[in-house]
Design a protein around this nucleic acid. Structure first.
Lengths: 206, 206, 206, 206
DNA sequence: CCCTAACCGAGACGGTACGTCTCGTCTTGAC
DNA sequence: GTCAAGACGAGACGTACCGTCTCGGTTAGGG
């Protein structure tokens, strides 16, 4: 029926553009290649569009058609990374904090995450969008999860009533961050999260 | 005096080479230019010998004659940076910890230090020498100073007897590091060190 | 009527293919655009299918559906050019030669012809089909016309009996060609054909 | 002696520029590669700087440093070609004309010359400098040589007193040009020059 | 009177070459 | 032997077309 077609057009709000549609496969290949190269330890400036195109098996045009510069591509590529938060049992604040911090520990052991972290921390000054987006997508959710657990603990009496929530977040996350950056070389010990939480709790608890 | 000459030869281990001596002025200009460029937010890969030479008003040869590659130059340049530890009163552990952490806070407010920190943290994977040297010169002295104060506190009873010293370092340094990286934008608040120490002490203290 | 259909099939030698017939308008537009671009001084290699399609208001597919490569298109396009020979009075050999050569002179003044000539002469090595077709359609008829007049002149006694016809053609055409290529800049003088013929006749005549 | 140096500088009129001098070897390799590629039948538009650089074993920069565009390079490259005129016996006008025309015939047999000729004739419209230079260096000397011989012939009575010198040049050169372009395929016959001269003389002579 | 098959335009695809830029190395005359 | 200047080969940049491919949408005859 004609009506249907008309409705569809109305519903989408815009006619499909003429010509061959852009290939989703190519788009995915480009993003993957970008992340692969970044994971190999390349910085953003070492990353060349030519290398991405070559690794993705794609023409340079296909990249430039979608992103007008390298930063936009990197921002989009990093945005596709999923960083799911662990499920929280909700039974005790201590257990939940350990879950959250242990998730951080495991993420720090993954090469791709390490590189993303490095890039976000070091190249942030030059690529402000990148930092903004990274904070919004990766940092803030974790910070908020920690904050929620801490606030829950304060309410339930498991944590001190006068605790500065932000300071609690800083101490817990900071200790993990410090260990992953400046601690002894090699993988972080499996019980690190537990030890950090206990050390912090000893003070945070009333 | 004959002694002087002999000693000089002995000390240098070789006779002064023939030809025009290398210009110390050029060397200094190169190091300065390198640090300036790094301070402007450049990563190591963005840093080009050409730019350094141009900024230093020096030929490229003059650089390559002294350092065989960029990493060596950067390592040397960063090594010239002084990072003196603050004097410690030694009266109370709390005051000493605040002194140390507040020194970190002030350093984090300096653009040049921030860049050095960024580079050390993010480009370490690609330039292992750099990390090694940075840890040895900048991280380890601070870590040791903190460790000393904490151990003194344990001995004096100001800190818990069963405190894991490394964990104490991680919590204190980590909280500062976290604030400087992921805390609210802008300069760190002047009382941050005090608040961090008090929050940590509340638990570290018996 | 069945007869008509049968005849049509017989005449065309094949059944009309199914589907939408090719647009004659598009075909004409493509040929025109091609000739226009060539007339603007483009060489064959400068000539791009994209430019032709754009100028003709046609998709590239529509061109490639008809000609498998640029050379085929150019050959067809140039083949559509008409190059009528002037009518010959037939009264005197001298007058007929002047007519033929003056037609050459006028053609040399036309931009489109100049370009076709240039292309035929310069790109012939690379596009052998093109040369072959051009010689057959443009050069040979003129050569033959000249030859006919000369042979008529020999038969009538207006030209030397022992004249090498090919050499006569070469001298007459060559002199015109030379003037149009290497003579003084600007249009060829109106009396050029007459002067060439007279100069040649002075020797060709017995 | 200091004086010598000073004089040298004075003599050259300019101090030698600082820095590494441009490599004559590279310059020669570029010219050679250009001529080679043109000789392979390439037109100017098919000729790519990248191909020249690759064939010459040279960076593209080295080409662009010397010539700002392709035309300039081609003009210079073609200018290096020598096209010596044959020595003229000077005994008889007929022999000298045959010498000159036979030199043309031999040049037409050389692949490199054919290409240069094609380029000069066909791409002249687009590259005016090229035509100008080619006429000055290649066409004009030959035209002048022919003119000299013809004028000598007129003076000595070997040629008609009322002969239009320009027309004589056009007839003689044009006949050769015609044969090389539109005559039967393959090499020009060895006695062509003689036959052309005799055919022309039969009329040019009184 | 729709079905169907080839046509049409538009435009994305993987490539190649462009002319520019900057890299790290090499080569020169002056000091 | 060191210095600056600057040419060198290499190769990435972003752009322009190449010839091919895939879309949604015409045509027009034959069922």
């Amino acid at each position: 029926m004609y009506g249907e077609t008309a409705m569809t057009i109305q519903e989408t709000g815009a006619a499909r553009p003429a010509g061959r549609p852009r290939s989703e496969k190519a788009e995915k290949a480009i993003i993957d290649a970008t992340l692969d190269l970044l994971s190999e330890g390349m910085g953003i400036s070492d990353l060349s569009i030519e290398a991405i195109a070559s690794k993705a098996g794609v023409g340079k045009t296909t990249i430039y058609r979608r992103w007008s510069n390298k930063e936009d591509l990197v921002v989009d590529a990093l945005s596709t990374l999923k960083a799911p938060l662990p499920p929280l049992a909700g039974t005790s604040v201590r257990d939940d904090l350990i879950s959250l911090l242990d998730a951080m520990r495991q993420e720090a052991g993954n090469q791709r995450n390490r590189c993303v972290m490095n890039i976000a921390m070091s190249e942030a000054d030059r690529y402000p969008q990148l930092l903004e987006r990274f904070v919004k997508r990766a940092v803030e959710p974790r910070r908020q999860a920690l904050r929620d657990v801490i606030e829950r603990g304060i309410a339930s009496g498991e944590l001190r009533a006068d605790l500065d929530v932000g300071m609690g977040v800083a101490i817990l996350s900071g200790a993990m961050l410090w260990h992953s950056k400046w601690g002894p070389a090699g993988d972080l010990p499996a019980d690190l999260a537990e030890r950090v939480v206990d050390a912090a709790l000893a003070g945070i608890a009333p």
